[in-house]
């Protein structure tokens, strides 16, 4: 399984990378390569030019920004997994990272690569969708951003413009309060992509009333899905098991799910509700442990 022949370029800046993309419609960016190279090997991807951005300095790094967190596109999964900043600002992402492949994949694969590829069953896109992250990118006109709810269109199809380079992802600071998160996944084997996964984050006030909630489902349909109706159902309420269960089932009721070799559509839909409920419960439990006013 050898790839087609292609040229290789290693630009020093994002602007130079975008210029190369603009000059050749069949040029492709490569960062960690963990997703792209299997596609090259199977000749599903047939670029004329590979533009290697892995070592472009401005693309790497985890930075606090406007009391939120910005992660550069070429930051490796293992760096995110072990980052104290991520644990502090985006604990849901830290919670999900051990589910991403296995150690060798996490050693080389990048956050940007996972986001840009957009596999509906991948953990990083799911967390980004769940938390309403902002996708940062750059093209010939300069740096831009796009809310994640506009980003994923179909399995591995994103709204990233041609000749643009995804440069990072920004997670906004959540509302103040006691925060907890939860992540559940069902897969055939431990390190596989999800058959279905649920991510949830909850913020409680000092009286355990829900101030904010975010939840999302991955692996069920064409893209990761944010369960928007949960906010209406849960904000202002005490998050009892019964309340969470009903809200999770209602939120998933209209979910479009996929049938494939590994699971039926019915399975995905039903288990999406189960996992959403469990993720919400874990998030609530964790938030209740957190002391008032400080993040757990």
């Amino acid at each position: 399984m050898k790839p087609v022949n292609f040229d290789y370029a290693r630009p020093n800046s994002v602007a130079a990378a975008c210029a190369l993309l603009a000059a050749d419609a069949d040029a492709r960016l490569i960062a960690g390569g963990q997703t792209l190279i299997p596609m090259l090997a199977m000749r599903l991807s047939r670029p004329t030019l590979l533009v290697d951005i892995l070592r472009v300095p401005e693309l790497n790094g985890i930075r606090e920004k406007h009391s939120g967190l910005e992660i550069g596109a070429t930051t490796r999964h293992v760096e995110v997994e072990t980052s104290a900043l991520v644990r502090k600002h985006v604990p849901l992402l830290a919670r999900a990272m051990p589910w991403v492949g296995h150690p060798a994949i996490r050693a080389r694969g990048t956050i940007g690569g996972s986001l840009a590829h957009g596999d509906p069953a991948a953990e990083v896109p799911l967390v980004a969708v769940t938390l309403g992250a902002q996708i940062l990118y750059e093209d010939a006109e300069g740096p831009k951003s796009m809310p994640i709810n506009e980003f994923y269109l179909a399995p591995t199809l994103t709204a990233l413009p041609a000749a643009a380079c995804l440069t990072g992802v920004r997670f906004a600071a959540p509302v103040a309060g006691r925060r907890g998160c939860g992540f559940h996944e069902v897969s055939a084997r431990r390190s596989d992509f999800a058959i279905v996964a649920a991510a949830a984050e909850v913020v409680l006030d000092p009286d355990d009333i829900c101030i904010a909630v975010s939840a999302g489902i991955g692996g069920a349909g064409d893209t990761p899905v944010r369960l928007h109706s949960l906010a209406e159902a849960l904000v202002g309420s005490k998050l009892t098991d019964r309340v969470l269960g009903e809200a999770a089932r209602a939120a998933v009721a209209d979910l479009d799910t996929a049938d494939d070799l590994h699971a039926s559509a019915a399975y995905r839909k039903r288990v999406a509700a189960v996992l959403a409920e469990r993720a919400l419960r874990d998030a609530r439990d964790e938030a209740m442990q957190a002391s008032s006013g400080r993040r757990g």
């Binding site: 399984m1 892995l54 050693a107």
Partner: peptide
């Protein structure tokens, strides 16, 4: 497998286990 699943191609890159089938030689400098 040449598509990054089996791990038979594992090498150490800066001390971290990595799949050699998922690394192009031209990127493996440094």
């Amino acid at each position: 497998c040449e598509h990054g699943v089996c791990g038979a191609c594992t090498v150490l890159i800066d001390g971290e286990p990595s799949r050699a089938c998922l690394m192009l030689a031209v990127r493996a400098d440094g």
